[in-house]
Design a protein around this nucleic acid. Structure first.
Lengths: 188, 188
DNA sequence: CTTATTCTGGAACGATTATTCAAATAAGAG
DNA sequence: CTCTTATTTGAATAATCGTTCCAGAATAAG
């Protein structure tokens, strides 16, 4: 059997992710994707189907990486409140590079069931992880006991979106950190 | 002099605003605009120049209306903190309909000087108005004195973006209100 | 009425879109 | 080397894009 050289699909997908992050779905052309991914045009269609399927895979990949990083920061420190702070700080530091989650949410709202499915799955996991640490922080007296954990988790995720929009709009690192600190303040 | 009937430019512009709000710039075609605005294709180009100029006018119009509404809510109540709450609540209630400010920020970042100019001008006015009421609320003891008014104003505007992304993603009215309440909590 | 002006809508333009067919190229296995 | 398969690339398709030209319909002032 002959086994010719095959291109790195993961590398190609990550290049697609970055292109979609920067320009969104509509403003990204197949030509841009091919160039960024460093593969031939036909390989793109053979391997990933079409532009929309590639986009879905990009969103899925991005969501996985991002959710994993969120949770790693969240669970890193011993104290729950420190984990929550670490997670928020990480988003503040990362907010200068465009988020594909916010991008796809803004571009398609909740009108694309297949996209919604992907984001719902990751969102559920992330919300649950955050909620657990909130409960833990409340037990430690670091988050006000009267707050409902689900509400706080939703608030933090909404804060992520706000930070990312601010970052996209040109806010500097120090300003983003100040915003993150203020959000944490709401939990006392 | 003969003076033929002229179409209502304000109505047409508002229709353009709504179309751009829903679909963004890239995904809005001239055909969609013509249909939504209820005018002939040539009238669009004669009156508004081209698609980009129309978009700039739409962003400008939207920003003006939105800034005015923000400030009206902000200055309505006698107590400053109530004005701030009213402004945030208004955004929470409005967050289901897509915001052209967030949309243009996300679609173009801060790389379009002519767009940036428009939003900077309105942003400056809004930030100043918010800051004034924050100072007032601090004097009344309703906002923590140690917070810097500029930071709080930036935080509130970032919260607007977060709420709007959440609304676009399908959050319901009650959930948005809860998020707004939590944001206000950060100011105590 | 006439006449001046505006608006409309079909036709066309060139450019770009996503996608596919088919042929050429490249590279590893035997 | 040959053979097999992956990948690339040129060409073509059909659709749509923003935009302009142009002819005719509509409308209001004189």
């Amino acid at each position: 059997m002959a086994r010719p050289k095959t291109f790195d699909k993961d590398r190609a997908l990550e290049a697609a992710v970055n292109t979609f992050r920067k320009h969104g779905y509509e403003a990204t052309s197949a030509e841009m994707l091919v160039r960024a991914m460093g593969i031939g045009r036909q390989s793109l269609y053979d391997t990933f189907g079409d532009k929309w399927q590639l986009y879905r895979m990009a969103v899925h990949h991005y969501s996985t990486v991002q959710t994993t990083a969120h949770i790693a920061a969240l669970r890193g420190p011993a104290r729950a409140i420190d984990g929550i702070k670490a997670m928020v700080d990480r988003v503040a530091q990362d907010a200068k590079s465009p988020c594909l989650g916010v991008g796809s949410t803004w571009e398609f709202g909740n009108e694309r069931p297949d996209l919604e499915e992907i984001k719902e799955a990751h969102g559920r996991v992330l919300r649950a992880a955050i909620r657990d640490r909130i409960v833990e922080a409340q037990a430690a007296g670091d988050i006000a006991a009267e707050l409902r954990p689900d509400d706080v988790a939703a608030f933090l995720i909404t804060t992520f979106a706000g930070l990312r929009v601010a970052g996209r709009g040109g806010a500097n690192a120090a300003g983003l950190q100040t915003l993150a600190d203020l959000a944490i303040r709401a939990l006392r």
